[in-house]
């Protein structure tokens, strides 16, 4: 199943990467969306008459990796959303986050139902997979770091893990919206849109990675930060502020160490945010770069190399998606455990 998705993703990455290269005047709505940066588009349009007679090599020069990366990794505003006069626009990432949320609810709630309905029974294949993850987070992440204190943090850790995992993984599934639009075009259906608007399927499933943006990872890291600090204050009381400095340090060192330790409290979530962001972006970028080679060099010989490396990176990304979700949650649990007791 994954390999099928993988090949689909590659095919679509290829077709999309090609889009800026074959702009020869006839612009379908999708391509309008893609090359939404109007300056680029108009320049292609102006060149249209000359470009019509241009050879392949010249059109190859119009390939722009930056634009491809922008298209695949950049956020796009889909709709404005005003709350008390402030605009909180719904973007591609927000939409994909909601896709992740929907999947989480649709998968986990029925699983919970079926697990709790016959708790004594032997779990099925689907429920036991969920159980494996839940047990792993509870025992190897929670109890391993916090001991019996982990019980009250379990819902938070589980939600954090599954939320990040799903956000990571849906970024690996090919953009269903794009597939829908392409399929529609294939059967002669054109989306009638206002200029600059985006077809609905693309709005729903753009295939962007929600965790590939600092806003998302930083928000999650800040949530972890608050949980860590609050649990420190709850477990140690006001002494927590003093106990940030490890025990056994001579008093003379405190004026230096206390500010360092306080700073450390902020670098931890910062590292969490950057680690997740970088991991979820780097793989995508490498894939785009290697597939970009095909359009950059326009050589047949490069195709097997580009595709095989992209496939390898894609497979690695599946592992990284799991690993980063685990690392984020494990470190959060570790920091919570660290804040509970002086060490």
């Amino acid at each position: 199943m994954l390999s099928v998705m993988n090949s689909l993703a590659l095919v679509f990455a290829l077709t999309l990467a090609q889009a800026p290269a074959n702009n020869q005047g006839q612009i379908v709505p999708l391509q309008k969306v893609e090359s939404g940066v109007s300056a680029k588009e108009t320049s292609v349009k102006e060149d249209g008459a000359e470009a019509a007679s241009a050879d392949v090599h010249e059109s190859a020069e119009s390939f722009d990796l930056n634009e491809v990366i922008n298209h695949h990794l950049g956020d796009v505003r889909l709709r404005d959303f005003y709350i008390m006069g402030y605009n909180f626009p719904i973007t591609k990432r927000v939409a994909m986050m909601w896709v992740a949320m929907t999947l989480l609810l649709v998968i986990l709630i029925p699983a919970a139902r079926s697990i709790s309905r016959n708790a004594a029974k032997r779990p099925g294949r689907f429920t036991s997979m969920i159980e494996v993850f839940v047990t792993f987070i509870r025992q190897d992440v929670g109890e391993n770091t916090m001991g019996h204190h982990s019980r009250s943090y379990e819902p938070f850790l589980l939600t954090l893990f599954f939320f990040i995992l799903f956000c990571n993984l849906i970024g690996l599934i090919p953009p269903m919206g794009e597939i829908a639009v392409k399929a529609g075009e294939l059967f002669g259906y054109q989306f009638h849109l206002e200029p600059g608007d985006i077809p609905l399927p693309l709005k729903i499933w753009s295939g962007i990675t929600p965790t590939g943006d600092l806003s998302v990872t930083a928000t999650l890291a800040i949530t972890s930060f608050f949980i860590i600090q609050i649990s420190g204050l709850v477990y140690q009381g006001i002494a927590y502020i003093k106990n940030i400095v490890p025990a056994g340090i001579p008093w003379i060192m405190w004026p230096i160490l206390w500010p360092i330790e306080v700073l450390g409290q902020f670098t931890k979530p910062f590292a969490l945010a950057i680690r997740l962001l970088a991991n979820m972006t780097a793989g995508h970028m490498i894939i785009l770069v290697f597939l970009g080679f095909i359009f950059q060099f326009q050589q047949l010989a490069i195709i097997p190399l580009s595709i095989s490396i992209s496939v390898a990176i894609y497979l690695l990304e599946i592992f990284v998606a799991l690993l980063q979700a685990y690392i984020f949650v494990f470190l959060t649990a570790l920091f919570i455990a660290g804040s509970q007791h002086r060490h």
Binding site: V37, H71, G74, D75, F81, F88, T91, L214, S215, T281
Partner: peptide
Amino acid sequence: LAEGSFNLLSVDPGLVFWT
């Protein structure tokens, strides 16, 4: 659509809110 650009270290308040 004009904002479809990619900046790794920019923080979008709207996205923070929705997250």
